[in-house]
Amino acid sequence: MSDITQKKMEQIAQMWNARGKGLITHMALEIEEVSTEGVRVRMPFNPDFCVDAEQSLLHGGILTALLDSVFGLANFVAIEGVSTMATLDLRVDYLRPARSRADVIVQAHCFRKTRHIAFNSGSVWFAGHEDAEIARGTASFALTRGETSLFDAMKKGKTS
C-alpha cells in the first residue's frame, strides 16, 4: 500500500463510504487491499441479491455489478488525473453456480491504461474459497482527463 498516498486513500474511503445512496452503498462494500497493482474488495452476503426462495444462490448480475464497481475503483487508484470514467464494455463469465451465504471477494486491476481508455480484469470468489472462482470479468473504460477529480466533482455536486 506504500505506493498510494495517504490523501488518495482518504479520498477513496470518503468516496465509497460517504456517498449515502446508490448501489455501492447498498452492496456495503469493504475495501480490503488497495495498491496500484490492484484492489481487493469484500461484499457481505445480502439475501436481496439471491434468485432462490432459500436465498443462498446469488444472481449473476450482482457479480457483474460488483466487478464493474471494483474496476472503477482500480482505475481511480491506478490512474492519475481522471475526472470521470464510463464503462465502455464488459464481459463476464460465470464459472460456477454462486451458491453460498459467505461474503464475496473481488480482486481487480487495471492492466493497461492509455490517455483515453483503461483496460481491466478481475476475479470473484467466496471468502475462504479462493481456489473456486465463481466469475471472471474484463472491461474497458472511457476516461475523461481533467484537473477536477472524480472526488472533487462529487463534493461540489451536480455542476455540469
Binding site: R19, G20, K21, G22, L23, I24, H59, G60, G61, I62, T64, A65, L66, L67, D68, S69, T87, L90, V92, A153, M154, G157, K158
Partner: peptide, 17 residues
C-alpha cells in the same frame, strides 16, 4: 440503482442485471 450519485445515472451493473 444509482451508480453515479452526482448525475444520478443507473449503475452499469444494474443495467446489465
Amino acid at each position: 440503482h444509482i451508480g453515479n450519485p452526482i448525475m444520478e445515472y443507473y449503475h452499469g451493473g444494474i443495467i446489465a442485471s
